[in-house]
């Protein structure tokens, strides 16, 4: 990395920050949704006790 201060750095940093937000946001949302669904299914499905991930 060279050329600091460089007039285009705000654009570069914004692009990387947006990438992190999009990737982390979708990943976190998917993880939380999956965890919630798994817990809810485990609570109401009588077959869930017999094997993991059996719907």
């Amino acid at each position: 990395m060279s050329g600091w201060p460089y007039p285009h750095w705000p654009y570069i940093v914004a692009a990387y920050a947006l990438a992190v937000v999009v990737l982390a946001g979708f990943s976190l949302a998917a993880f939380l949704r999956l965890r919630r669904a798994r817990a809810r299914l485990a609570a109401i499905d009588p077959r869930r006790g017999r094997g993991q991930d059996r719907p």
């Binding site: 998917a30 993880f31 949704r33 999956l34 919630r36 669904a37 798994r38 809810r40 299914l41």
Partner: peptide
């Protein structure tokens, strides 16, 4: 992950 959640 989303598909697994949707199936559940």
């Amino acid at each position: 992950a989303r598909l697994r959640a949707a199936v559940m």
